[in-house]
Design a protein around this nucleic acid. Structure first.
Lengths: 353, 353
DNA sequence: CGGAAATGTGGCATCGATGCCACATTCCGC
DNA sequence: GCGGAATGTGGCATCGATGCCACATTTCCG
């Protein structure tokens, strides 16, 4: 592979390099009759430019269609307005809502969102981290898969906000749903309806998310002097199909009168199984879920749920990160607990006797 | 506002500037005992470096934790690996799926996705365009709100792929669902079941999307020698609540035996109204929708739909754009029609007599 | 009215990687 | 064994915006 061959090949594969020459600060300077430095100050840096010059420069820039080159700016000023957002699955409405909230707030503050799906895979997550480091982003919002991820970022001076879950003891800022309270409230709602044998469909408890929800489930029982039958805590995998199979087992011979799904995906599986069995809800079985998503109010009867305020969680993440980047926060890490809200709908009713 | 005051204020608001000095090409060069140019070639540019040196440089880079600075690279080489993605509403599963497909393919090709929600607002859309121009992205994938958007981008030498809809006569590449065929197939399915008075709930026909679906609806009627009663084409606004009200009107005195919703959002409204009226589906009314999303198979009876293959559409967009950027495509614009697939479920049945 | 402070602008170096060219080797064939 | 091609490396300028400092004006006050 000779250099020459290389270049030739390259030239062939890029025949239509767009030849657009975009105006630079120099051009604007010439047009406005000032120096490049002045243009820069007039357009961006605060202060340092008389209103008259500022207006003139603005007009000139507008006239020749000048658009700042972020790459040059970022390089020189050693900053960037791109923020990394690292989530597990955009197709899951929880993550989509989270991302939507983040994006909204970032956009309002004139930051850009670089969104990466890691599919819950540690390798892809680290790959993404590398990319974000290369982009020199000042901050990242992540629903971490591995504690290593926030750690590496922080070691490189990148601000990190962990969303939805805590992994190990990172010093990162955190935005979490108040899982324990929410799950507790939901469980108590069922207990108040007379349920004593409540199944909990849950996929993990390693992360604070599952752990919190389980804790809330237990707390509600304890508060009402009920002992939790450990057999009713049904561990399953993270996909709907697995949840369905687990629900099947749960419904066989455990005499549960209610089932709580720990998240929206598991709820899909649970509902599918329940519908398949033609169980009358809520007469024969009450069904509820943590993490309200739109379809839950479309099925009949509509599902009783706990709304995490996911979009607001996303907004909080972004606000927190921006404040951190601007250095407006004391150095100690901040924990934001987003309150969860119980939404009672038709799928929960008095326990059958 | 004196300069000094400015600086002081700035200093106060950024007390903890992360002092992390990241290794540069120079550092790697020193570590490996070669020149910076060689490092650059060894790590990135193809060819031009002996395997031995290449390995040595790689090792050195690894050892000192070198991560290329994309800003510098982009500036110098006048390219970027960030791709803009401009959609209307991330919370709508259609757009989320589209974005997921795009991201997947971009990531595989080592591009990054900068995702912007324009909320269907022309002003925000143009705002986003400006930002993407500033980032010097080589390409953008957009579900356009305005024809101006792809146009401005192209005028600035940015490659554009329009997804899901065509606006006016831009020269952009296009990736569309085969709306006409899909809608036609769906309508014919209903006609075959004996329906002759089919309502169509639709929000717009200015864009190719709505226009195509309406055309398919008409085509199916024509193919079966049925005249379309224009009163059954129910125009509505783009939100579920409006769709619900429109459905209400449609159900009052038009003697429709089936309703097709032109997209997933409208379907929500239609379903809500139908459930509210306690109509038996499909005995009293058949219900169907264009654009299959997960909840449609969760409701009972599950909805008959047309699956657009949205994720695949996203992938197509990304593949097309990348090929375009690499200059692998002939200059004439390309139109990709993604086939739609009819999914018959329980919500459609024989027409009542 | 003079000199110091305040105020606005311009000049120049610089951020970090890379394109391009020159040059030092090595290789080959006659 | 020698001239010229092939091959691999280093040097240097450069992408475009901005931080910093110097300096030319103005402004202000004793």
């Amino acid at each position: 592979m000779s250099p020459r061959g290389q270049q030739a090949a390259r030239a062939v594969s890029q025949p239509t390099q767009p030849p657009v020459r975009r105006p630079t600060v120099q051009d604007v300077a010439r047009e406005a009759g000032v120096s490049p430095s002045t243009v820069s100050r007039a357009l961006h840096t605060r202060g340092y430019a008389s209103p008259a010059v500022r207006a003139r420069v603005r007009a000139a820039a507008e006239r020749i269609g000048y658009v700042t080159d972020h790459n040059a700016r970022n390089l020189r000023s050693r900053t960037s307005t791109s923020i990394g957002v690292l989530i597990s699955d955009l197709r899951n409405p929880f993550y989509a809502d989270l991302a939507a909230g983040i994006e909204e707030e970032l956009r309002a503050a004139e930051y850009q969102m670089v969104l990466v799906n890691d599919n819950g895979d540690p390798a892809e997550e680290m790959q993404a981290v590398e990319t974000l480091l290369a982009m020199r982003v000042p901050g990242v919002i992540v629903t971490p898969v591995t504690a290593k991820c926030p750690q590496v970022l922080q070691n490189n001076g990148v601000h990190v906000v962990c969303a939805d879950r805590e992994l190990g003891r990172s010093g990162s800022d955190l935005v979490l749903s108040d899982n324990k309270s929410g799950a507790c409230e939901l469980t108590e709602h069922l207990i108040a309806l007379g349920h004593t044998r409540i199944g909990l469909l849950i996929d993990e408890t390693k992360w604070s998310t599952g752990a919190g929800r389980l804790a809330g489930f237990r707390a509600a029982h304890a508060d009402n002097d009920l002992v939790v039958d450990e057999n009713l805590i049904a561990f399953t995998s993270f996909d709907a199909e697995a949840a369905r199979r687990t629900t099947r087992k749960l419904l066989s011979g455990h005499e549960v009168t209610a089932i709580i799904s720990a998240n929206n995906v598991l709820a899909q599986g649970a509902l599918a199984e329940v519908q398949d069995r033609r169980l009358k809800i809520p007469r024969q079985l009450s069904l509820a879920a943590y993490d309200d998503v739109p379809w839950m109010s479309l099925v009949q009867p509509a599902l009783t749920t706990v709304d995490q305020g996911t979009v607001e969680m996303g907004r909080s993440c972004a606000r927190l990160l921006i404040a951190r980047i601007r250095g407006e926060l004391p150095s100690r890490r901040r924990l934001v607990k987003v309150p969860a809200r119980l939404i009672v709908r038709g799928s929960t009713g008095p326990a059958p006797r």
